[in-house]
Design a binder for these strands. Structure first.
Length: 215
DNA sequence: TCATTAAGTATGC
DNA sequence: GCATACTTAATGA
């Protein structure tokens, strides 16, 4: 990432001044897919996921992000329905800024426009990686996901960046598979000495070998 | 210590 | 072979 979101303190403050603050408890829906004119959601605290729901009840997770982060930018920019729903994963604080405020701020402020473009770029990368993974099997997808976690910081990680804070369930949502499949695949990785697991935590031990699985 | 949630496992489709 | 459902284990209040 060329410039982390957290360094845009001035732009962030401007957004905060223009929007309405809302808080969400874990599991609460921030916005639903298909909604229009929802505004820009600036995550100031907490962690959320973007996902798509299908009529049979299955869901596909598109991104998990931790504050500071932004969601809803696509429909602000093209004034169409959102494709994803967003849900709080922990106690989360959000500032909702109306679309027209965002657009006028973009016109006035180059840094702010760059901020939004960087948000878009990061999400496109995330989606590209997932699109490419279509041809891979579960084991390869999972290895790839673990590496992405590390190299793109799409998800949350501890400061040493080798320890991923993610549950098997979240990974299953991402990869379109079930949790037990993740559990057994991770067990294989662990037996091979590639990772180490604790409850809700995965530690990368052998990045090179993990990459070799999908390359 | 209890309730909640993550992880492990067995069974049936 | 994979998903569902049940069991066990860990965590935080």
């Amino acid at each position: 990432m060329s410039r982390p979101l957290s360094t845009y303190t001035e732009e962030w403050a401007q957004l905060a001044a223009m929007g309405i603050k809302r808080t969400y408890k874990p599991g609460e829906i921030i916005h639903m897919q298909g909604e229009k004119n929802i505004g820009l959601f600036c995550i100031t605290q907490g962690k959320i996921k973007n996902f798509v729901c299908f009529s049979d009840g299955t869901e596909k997770v598109m991104a998990i992000m931790e504050a500071p982060a932004i969601t809803g930018e696509t429909s602000v920019l093209d004034n169409r329905e959102t494709m994803f729903s967003a849900q709080a994963l922990v106690n989360t604080e959000v500032i909702v800024v109306p679309a027209k405020e965002v657009l006028s701020l973009m016109q006035r402020n180059f840094n702010f426009m760059m901020l939004l473009l960087e948000v878009c770029a990061e999400k496109i990368r995330c989606l590209e990686l997932q699109a490419e993974s279509v041809v891979l099997n579960t084991q390869q997808k999972l290895a790839r996901m673990l590496i992405n976690f590390y190299s793109y910081g799409i998800f949350s990680y501890r400061t040493d960046k080798k320890v991923l804070l993610v549950t098997h369930e979240q990974l299953a949502g991402f990869l379109g598979t079930t949790r037990p499949k993740i559990t057994s695949t991770l067990s294989m990785f662990e037996a091979q000495g590639l990772i180490r697991r604790r409850r809700g935590v995965i530690e990368i031990l052998d990045e090179i070998s993990l990459k070799a699985i999908f390359e």
